[in-house]
Computed example of a mutant assay.
Amino acid sequence: MAADLRWGIVGASDFARRTMAPALHMAAGAHVVALATRDASKAAPFSAYLPGLRVESDYEALLTADDIDALYVPLPNHLHVEWVLKALQAGKHVLCEKPIAMAASEFDVMIAARDSSGKLAAEAYMIVHHPQWQRARDLLASGAIGTLRHVEAVFSYNNPDPENVRNKPTMGGGGLRDIGVYTFGSTRFATGQEPLDLHATLEREHDFDTFAEVTARFDGFTFHSVVSTRLWDRQEVVFHGDSGVMALTAPFNAGRYDQAELVLETARNTRTVERWPGVNQYVLQVEAFCRSAQTGEPYPWTLEQARGTQVMIDDALRYLPDQ
């Protein structure tokens, strides 16, 4: 049996504390060794459930640590590429929060560094590890709803806090970067297709988007997405075919927004519902990463796949109106 992959966490973000550090702790094949934070007071909540956790005051200390195999990077968006490259150059595997880059052009250097280092580098796109999305992809491929003709996707929440990093353009804020990755990437993952063209209507505050209505044409089907950081909480993705409809009612924050469900309607009065209570997609993500890093098993969300989503984000942001 292979030894556990030993992890260091770069930065004590709230998301790391609430979600990913517990997932790293619970995942089979993973062991959290160290946390780097410039604010020592933020380390205590991590140490409470990570016994023996070493706390470093300098992020760079994790790069040179011999007892760390992989880094998890939950830093603000504008620092992601820098730390992916630093991790790979230091001979560490790296799992970085989404969006892993600020522009599609930044993927080339990360892919080259990954290939040169022989280490695994991936965007933390957890939904592809959840069985509801794997089931959705399989049902589409099997023709369960006939020929797919349209996809409707929405993700919204209301966060006007000016101190939140999502509302700071210098840190890579904005709705498309924060949650557009979900409506765009999930459609690409489930269908295996890339858009042929794209149009967007955006609203802005200061220098970032807070609302985006995006339409796109794929080969054989149309796509409509609404993403907003100024609307009430809502999540749903609907795949509409010529002989059925498939809806995912908690497609992105399964188990938190609501229970993960897949509702399939394929004939009059025929409706089936599949549910996955208790599934933690973050734990599944870590376990998949550890297996891939240690055995070479294919990872389900490569940098090349993540790049396609960033292309869509870049295209949509071209429509950001002038102030």
Rank of each mutant, 00 (worst) to 15 (best):
Q235E: 07
F208W: 13
E194N: 10
T215C: 06
F218R: 10
E213R: 15
L198C: 06
T249L: 13
G185K: 05
V238K: 14
H199S: 13
N159L: 15
E203C: 13
E213M: 14
V263R: 06
A144Q: 09
G185I: 06
D197Y: 10
A144R: 08
D207F: 08
G255Y: 01
P251K: 00
Y182C: 07
V227E: 08
V214H: 08
G220N: 11
D219H: 11
F218A: 09
I179Q: 09
D209V: 14
A144I: 04
Y182P: 04
G175F: 08
S142E: 07
F211N: 03
F208Y: 15
D209E: 15
W232I: 11
R137G: 03
T249H: 08
S186V: 10
G173D: 02
K168W: 00
K168E: 03
A212P: 01
E213Q: 15
V238Y: 09
D233F: 13
F184L: 05
F239S: 02
D197C: 13
H150G: 07
P162E: 02
P169R: 13
F211M: 07
A141L: 01
T147Y: 00
R188N: 05
L140C: 00
F208L: 15
L176S: 07
F184E: 02
H240A: 08
P195I: 10
A254S: 10
V154C: 07
A141S: 03
H224C: 15
F252E: 08
R230P: 00
D161L: 08
A200T: 07
G244Q: 09
A190P: 02
L148M: 01
R177K: 11
R188L: 09
S142V: 00
E163G: 12
A144V: 05
T187Y: 06
G146R: 01
L262Q: 12
V181Q: 11
V181F: 12
A260Y: 02
R256D: 08
V181L: 13
S156R: 12
V181A: 06
E265A: 12
E152K: 12
I145Y: 00
L248Q: 02
P195W: 14
T187C: 15
G220I: 13
A200P: 03
V237N: 00
R177C: 05
G173N: 03
R177S: 06
T183S: 05
L140S: 01
G175A: 15
Q134S: 02
M246E: 11
V237D: 05
V151W: 11
T201N: 12
N159Q: 11
Q134R: 10
N167I: 04
T201P: 01
A153V: 00
F221N: 04
T147K: 00
G173P: 00
D161P: 12
F218V: 06
A250L: 04
Q193E: 08
E205G: 08
V151I: 14
L264D: 14
Y157Q: 04
P169C: 12
L262A: 10
V263S: 04
V214P: 07
G146F: 01
S243M: 02
